[in-house]
Design a protein around this nucleic acid. Structure first.
Lengths: 205, 205, 205, 205
DNA sequence: GATGAATGAGGTTTCATTCAT
DNA sequence: CATGAATGAAACCTCATTCAT
């Protein structure tokens, strides 16, 4: 870190922090829309209202913003899920409602992250650090999913909880993706309904 | 077609056909590994054992191979599924076995196509022709899925068959993806087993 | 204009303006010497003392510099003619002197533009925008020619003034071309003298 | 010549001669339409109905066809002029008619060569052999022009015959060019008429 | 001989990054 | 510090020419 000190600014002043945040936000949006490789630094800088030169005083390179965005993304996602889930009274909610609530939460979150997720799977394979980060975040999401599932008052059918959490997490993600992307020949409500049925009949006795 | 004649070679000689095939195969592999935008034509050509010049006498541009690969991909996938499914005796097979067979089929197919699918979701949004093609192929896959599900002798629980086929198709695809990609902290068999449980308990009474 | 902003630099700093000017000058020279298609962007950039990258931040593509050069060419030519002609006292000058002065003016102008004119005729046929521009400039040149001819105190012989202005304009241009290009087996003065004779005996009673 | 023997075929058989002729014709047309550098050998070969491979057994390289075309062009042009001029009875024809006839002759010739002439001026500067050839042909054309002019029964005004022949030759060429190219805002007849007036009033007492 | 497939140098253009002002 | 001008390696694509069949 000490040898980066003179190149990369660690923002301490308020303005500096806002600028960095602006860059991250701009990058996030563009990566989501067009993908990492299809977004260029000039565009990010412009969208953030700074010069290319400034961009490089906040981030060593383009990859660095991606990582920053990735961290934000993970933290945000978890926070949203937690916030949404904390609204629930686990004593009174029924199983379908619980699942539906989870699906809705992810769906809302997805709106902000549509497309970004897509890009992630590509980056995953081209950079070891990114891979590590993503694995960690994925794991956090899965664990959280598992915890929520277990909070329902009913017994879960499966004995392989670990595998189950993967299945549920991935399935919900996939369908949320379909709902978010596809121009919906099939109404959202119908897909959500079937999804909830599937998960409920799978998980609970 | 007549005005393309000048630029694009329609393979007539045996050698020519082999070359074109080699390019398509090489492109498929590279697109899968690194994505469309991260693969360059020189690499594709080199991997196919030909010069860049040759590449461009078979395809107008990089996008054109992508489309060719996409067509192959769709046709292959359907063919594999059909071949695999035709091995089944629908009178004697039980429901879990049927689903397991479907999952296995998709899994094997995926081996050839790992990562390619990933790239597709990005291309989907940036090219109208590709979008059309993919929608058509997706629809074909979904319909096929539906047909097979209905072949089981049992009654299906759901009344919204259309939505159900989307859910099942996407779910299986997603989990097959996870299995294929992730360096498997969790054993394939465990994931498959849970997946089958979920689908069976969802679909059948 | 706003959507070009991203790609094309609108020179603001002094340095930037000089660079753009250098590129235009270099392009002009090279196009004149070798023609548009035989000049490559690397050569233009090198001659202007900049990198290829810089070239492309000032012009969308090679065609764009050509158009810029074309506009400069037209404006310069008219300005030179006007400047030169304003030196004349139309009350005292005789007809031969007037024509000679016009020829000299065009001849001097040509020195800067030798060969460029040549290339124009090729571009004329392959690009609608260039065609429009050239037609407009040609017309301006012809009109100006006509005006000057009419300023002589004598009556013009011809009744078809429009056709006459075309003939004179083209003839002078053609001979000026010959004088500028050909390694002069025949002395400039002899050619100029005959040209002036021809035009004077044609135009004036 | 002896070391080329095994590479370039000197056509002896009838078919071979026809093929070579076809290539030259095709090249001529394409060079005229698009210019030398914008025409590629594949197109020429295709238009001539032969393979690229064959093209190269008739001509060492692309430049060689150009030179062949150039020779044909010059010979053809002279032949056309001679043929047309031989129709004239120099004893009875009047001066305007003579000039008009010359203009018409060149105009008809031009129809076949439009655009080719244009390209010539570019090639002129990039190849010494082509330069020599063109200078020779130009000279032949000019001399011929001079000869015809002198055949009129009247005395020519000018004393500098050499310069006069250049002036006339170039002027006629230029106006013929204008007539051939421009979408004629001004009717051909008007331009021709003024041109003839100019030349007659210049040349003859 | 003829064919057309293959080659690869060279041209156009993009963009992450550096650096002068 | 901030700016945006400049860099140049690398991507896409073309075409004159050679060569296997």
């Amino acid at each position: 870190m000490s040898d980066m000190e003179d190149k990369i600014r660690t923002p301490r002043q308020e303005r500096s922090i806002r600028t960095k945040e602006a860059i991250v936000q701009a990058a996030m949006k563009q990566f989501s829309d067009k993908g990492f490789h299809q977004t260029n630094t000039k565009q990010i800088a412009a969208a953030a209202g700074v010069s290319t030169g400034s961009f490089y005083s906040y981030f060593v390179d383009k990859r660095a913003v991606f990582i920053e965005v990735l961290k934000n993304y993970g933290a945000d996602l978890l926070a949203r899920i937690d916030a949404s889930m904390s609204e629930i009274n686990f004593l009174t909610i029924d199983r379908s409602e619980l699942i539906m609530h989870l699906v809705d939460t992810l769906l809302i979150s997805h709106e902000a992250f549509i497309g970004y997720h897509r890009e992630l799977t590509i980056m995953y394979h081209s950079d070891e650090e990114i891979k590590q980060l993503m694995d960690a975040q994925y794991e956090a999401g899965r664990i959280r999913t598992l915890e929520y599932l277990q909070m329902g008052q009913d017994e879960l059918k499966t004995e392989d909880m670990e595998a189950a959490s993967v299945i549920v997490f991935e399935t919900v993600s996939a369908i949320v993706d379909v709902i978010s992307f596809s121009q919906q020949r099939i109404a959202t409500e119908r897909l959500k309904s079937e999804l909830v049925h599937m998960i409920v009949s799978y998980l609970y006795k």
